[in-house]
Design a protein around this nucleic acid. Structure first.
Lengths: 204, 204
DNA sequence: TTGAGACTATACCGGTCGGTATACTGCAAT
DNA sequence: ATTGCAGTATACCGACCGGTATAGTCTCAA
């Protein structure tokens, strides 16, 4: 409770925007949740749009710092970090407050490309992808950008899938697919003389 | 222009809902676009919610029929159909009116799981996934449900990614990843010296 | 000719939207 | 003691929201 007033307002707004949607959240509801008045809100945020952008920009910053921290805490090599990403995503999805990705949702609510809200959302995923590409590069992927894009597709897909239907195990499936893609992207020579467990020739 | 009035209303509403978002579209705008009056609209659709559900249900039906038709027109074996899915998605994304997936967007606008709009959206992806699982089964995948879920993650991810930033080549990347997953899911014994019926080895 | 149903026209409802005006309280620095 | 600023309280604005009431126009069939 040592938050400044603008921080308190932004926090209340963020929770409402994320849990109910941006358009579905009125300024009055934010004011009530933050236990303040419209006058104060409009002092620090000249318009609701400004508040929305502040929400997304802070979320961008916070989420990426938190995420990288979680990954670092779970793994210490590029390859294991790439895989740990999916574990972190899986844990994030498990919390009851999970309502999907704030940026995907925001982009869906403001579908025009030129809209600032849409643009900030797009930037988040650019940053996220370059984070993955960085790890992929350290790992020694043949094509870090390709691998990063493909992994991010799996991640975004898993988030959306879990948002649609909870507890569908999307993160786990995404991880299994990621393992295959990561292995396939390795510049190491693939060892083909491994256990092709017996000749169980199944039919066409 | 041989549409009945309720069809005309539904069509106008659908275009607005998809292009601008559901919450962002007022009843007055729909009425104006359909060139009719509120009284007529409320005769056929007792509430805006009913209209929204009608929009989603028709889209569900139409899209899946259209999609399967497109895939069938492009390929005639299970494996090539699985790959053709990504080509169809890619072509769909290329049209200028593309604003992502109506169901993902709707689920983002109505985030509560219990909401009928959310539920109809979730059902769409269940149907879509079982369509893929069916193809995967015909193909002879070791685990059709697993492959179907993984491919659907790639597809959903590609749609979201393209929605965020147009012309990012997401569908192509998704297809490349899908090829690897499909090959890996084959119950056939991988034999590098044997030409498979239709595909050359596309990756190292 | 009449009347029923489809559709239009328009005014209206209470409520909420984002945003503003005005006046007030409490407190800290001068 | 006074000023100035952070924040409160509340009433208000025009616009729009989803939805309704009432009355009028058109066509077509009995």
């Amino acid at each position: 409770m040592t938050l400044t007033l603008p921080e308190k307002i932004l926090q209340a707004a963020s929770e409402l925007f994320y849990s109910q949607g941006i358009r579905a959240t009125g300024v009055d509801a934010i004011v009530k949740a933050a236990n303040t008045t419209k006058m104060s809100l409009y002092k620090y945020f000249p318009s609701k749009d400004d508040l929305v952008l502040a929400f997304l920009r802070k979320r961008d910053e916070d989420f990426r710092v938190w995420f990288a921290g979680q990954v670092d805490a779970k793994a210490d090599t590029p390859k294991t970090k790439l895989l740990a990403i999916f574990d972190v995503i899986g844990e994030w999805m498990a919390i009851p407050e999970f309502r999907g990705c704030a940026f995907i949702n925001a982009a869906a609510e403001f579908p025009l490309e030129g809209n600032p809200v849409h643009q900030v959302s797009a930037e988040f995923y650019e940053h996220f992808r370059s984070y993955i590409a960085d790890l992929a590069g350290q790992y020694g992927s043949k094509s870090p950008e390709t691998l990063a894009l493909q992994l991010s597709l799996l991640i975004e897909g898993a988030i959306v899938s879990e948002q649609m239907k909870r507890h569908s195990g999307a993160a786990g499936q995404a991880k299994q697919a990621a393992i295959i893609l990561i292995e396939g992207s390795s510049s190491h020579i693939p060892d083909i003389s491994l256990p092709t467990n017996d000749s169980r020739r199944s039919d066409e």
